[in-house]
Design a protein around this nucleic acid. Sequence first.
DNA 1: AATGAATGAGCCTTCATTCAT
DNA 2: TATGAATGAAGGCTCATTCAT
Lengths: 215, 215, 215, 215
Amino acid sequence: MTQKKPSRQERAQDRGEAIIAAALAEFTAHGFAATRVEDIARRAGVAKGTVFHHFADKEGLFEGMARAVLKPWIDHIDSVRLEPGRSVRETVGAFLRPLIREVAGPRGDVVRLFISEGLRFPRLAEFYYREILSRVLDIQRRLLAAAAERGELAQPAIAEFPQLVGAPLIVGVLWHGLFQRIDPLDLDALVTTQLDCLFVPSQRPAGSPMSRGEP
Amino acid sequence: MTQKKPSRQERAQDRGEAIIAAALAEFTAHGFAATRVEDIARRAGVAKGTVFHHFADKEGLFEGMARAVLKPWIDHIDSVRLEPGRSVRETVGAFLRPLIREVAGPRGDVVRLFISEGLRFPRLAEFYYREILSRVLDIQRRLLAAAAERGELAQPAIAEFPQLVGAPLIVGVLWHGLFQRIDPLDLDALVTTQLDCLFVPSQRPAGSPMSRGEP
Amino acid sequence: MTQKKPSRQERAQDRGEAIIAAALAEFTAHGFAATRVEDIARRAGVAKGTVFHHFADKEGLFEGMARAVLKPWIDHIDSVRLEPGRSVRETVGAFLRPLIREVAGPRGDVVRLFISEGLRFPRLAEFYYREILSRVLDIQRRLLAAAAERGELAQPAIAEFPQLVGAPLIVGVLWHGLFQRIDPLDLDALVTTQLDCLFVPSQRPAGSPMSRGEP
Amino acid sequence: MTQKKPSRQERAQDRGEAIIAAALAEFTAHGFAATRVEDIARRAGVAKGTVFHHFADKEGLFEGMARAVLKPWIDHIDSVRLEPGRSVRETVGAFLRPLIREVAGPRGDVVRLFISEGLRFPRLAEFYYREILSRVLDIQRRLLAAAAERGELAQPAIAEFPQLVGAPLIVGVLWHGLFQRIDPLDLDALVTTQLDCLFVPSQRPAGSPMSRGEP
DNA sequence: AATGAATGAGCCTTCATTCAT
DNA sequence: TATGAATGAAGGCTCATTCAT
């Protein structure tokens, strides 16, 4: 098996990725202010100066890291489709379930990091809204509109507040970060319960395939 | 009218309060890490050293401030009662409404501060849970149990998740801090919609004796 | 002999002066860019942080030092008077002589420092012009006007160029800094020769005491 | 028309010249300390490492640049001749006039740079003295000796101080760099006035062609 | 010879905390 | 108790120089 020797450029890109990975770990562990660039460098196995070779400054590094982390999430978001024969409830559930799993694990730290630093740095909040939230809300709004049309909504007003769909996820992520050790919370059940409140079984004409997806 | 000359102890207490007020303002404005003790001292009208006479260190000052801020909230929480002739839905609404108003204003900053710093300092989170959250959850749990008994719950499982009652409030507070400028959100309507989903009009037969549930 | 114990404020002022003295020494020795604040602190016998307690930053320290150094010069300048019975030539000579002596010694370093940093920092040049040069030029202009009136000027145009009076001093200071080791220059004689070229013995009515001041 | 492909050596020389030109621009703009090698490289259109292939280090680059810049000046200096039928005054004037023009323009920056950095780096001052100043002074001395012989000198002592000839030029260059914006100075008139003070119309026997000062 | 990524010593500046008055 | 000058460890960032490609 031939392993091509990596070119200088490739090595540079690898370093950049190593720095981002290290930054992710350090920033989530200590927050922006308390994270030392030197620790990031050490963890990435590079010299301090190398970090500034790849990113203009500490803030730029944070942004670069955020961008890299958010990338796969955007892909996930864009993959949502309301497929025929599937209730809105099922579709939303299918969208949320992987997020729940991610967010209950180490990725929860990232979300909490974005929340807590976003509160301090408006630019980050704007970036987060533009790249992630606006997309999610658009999709949820469309799904809720479809649900309203099909009579799946428990309350008509829900269609105005797509935030209610994600609310238990957000609360759950915060809870995990703040109180999980003291008073554990079943994130999955929390979300499911919320969905049970928002949606009612669709009143389709008999003969249509009833979705059995969600328990 | 004679103004009693304040005793040494009284003056000391006044200073303590001034420091706490200043700390509240500065911490909410900049967060724990970015707040300088000197700025707090200046705002309080005392010397930097004086701050350290009243509090062991910066963290102790933060805790002292948190304690003082949370005090009136505890009183509000302890005042909740399920009064006869009042639905659970109404009671919960009456509890949440003043919070919504507070939280949409400058007090929202404090909540966001506590969330943001609680994620970083477990002791603060524990303190917050012990003093505030556990009480709120207890009360909500009791109310939800009563609601379940009366058939006011849209889903039985809701009784297990009192967090769902506060969820829109939390989400709303974060939204105000992060995205309100970009995409305003009606906090009041958000909460109301959530309550509409959690509760259904009680199905008691007319004239039936109203439950006395809460002591 | 009772030596009053210095108050805290007095000690602080002493430190400020020590820092300025140290800054003068270090800046003249290495220039602004190559001088380390830490070295200034060490030389002044204070901690590094103390320097920033007295001055906002390195540049502010430089300015403070410049201000302190220039103070006595201003006093010297303001003391110039064209006394009766004294030729302009003598008056100018009396003004320049102490400067020559200062400038040939360690004070020359300061002048060279101001020239070389002034070229880089316009604000310093402006400060220098406002505080020192404009005063000197005013006085020289007035003296040259008097000289013109008395027929002491070798050329009428000289009255337009008070800079010519100081020119040999400036050139001499630079020469001392640049080439004195290689090719020594007699600063005193240089200035005297220039004055001999600018002024002619005054054509006062016979009988008036002719000043022979300058050799 | 065929463009000969430049040999490796020629390309190397071109690069060296480009680097020197870039170094001149950057050094005069920011001074030695504040100039970044990277900026020089970028301006020269080469990589940072290339600069260090052509010059040992930053200081070597400065010296190389100085050498290149001074070359044409040396030629100008060596061209001075006291031609028959021309007064010393005229000859000196003819020598200074192009310098005045150069020095009032962008070349003034170079002179100021050499002064400013020469004060900091003795080797540069020595180099400057050896290559330029000693030649100029030799020539001036010879001219002044001739002037003395012809009775053109206003004062005999002037012959000892050739520095007085260039003094107004130096002062003027500094003035342009330091105060020209605040208080403009006519460099040409300044030099002319000084020459008027140093020289008197030659006392040649009648019939000899009288020089009429400046053409 | 040219490149430019990587290095790491160095420096300015901040700020919580101490302590003599 | 109050003061605020002093401290000094810590950390972000710069940039001349090196060296593998």
